[in-house]
């Protein structure tokens, strides 16, 4: 089990009641991280993933500054002290 920090931005903070950084202990990869977030903040998985379970095109997940889309997506493995950023697109002018 690895201890990581997940940064939550924008509209997703409604679900965390304004909390910006969440410390999590996760077993393996980004998918596990999303499951853990869903346990603590119900509704999070639906905001992050679409009906097919893929990361939504309007949400980016970064591990230490790299977009997981160019890594292994939800299967991107996490190690201790990784910094995960979950960033929904900001649309306001």
């Amino acid at each position: 089990m690895n201890s990581i920090v997940v940064r939550i931005s924008g509209s997703l903070r409604k679900l965390t009641r304004g909390k910006t950084e969440i410390e999590l202990t996760v077993a393996g990869n980004i998918a596990d991280c999303v499951i853990k977030l869903e346990e603590q903040f119900p509704g999070m998985r639906e905001k992050i993933c679409d009906e097919e379970g893929e990361i939504r095109g309007a949400v980016n997940i970064y591990v230490n500054g790299d977009n997981v889309r160019s890594l292994q997506g939800l299967a991107t493995t996490l190690k201790a002290e990784d910094e995960v950023d979950i960033l929904p697109a900001f649309a306001a002018a």
Partner: peptide, 11 residues
């Protein structure tokens, strides 16, 4: 960077 648009709402 963002392949799809976010849902529209009043921000």
């Amino acid at each position: 960077i963002f392949p799809d648009p976010p849902p529209s709402e009043i921000f």
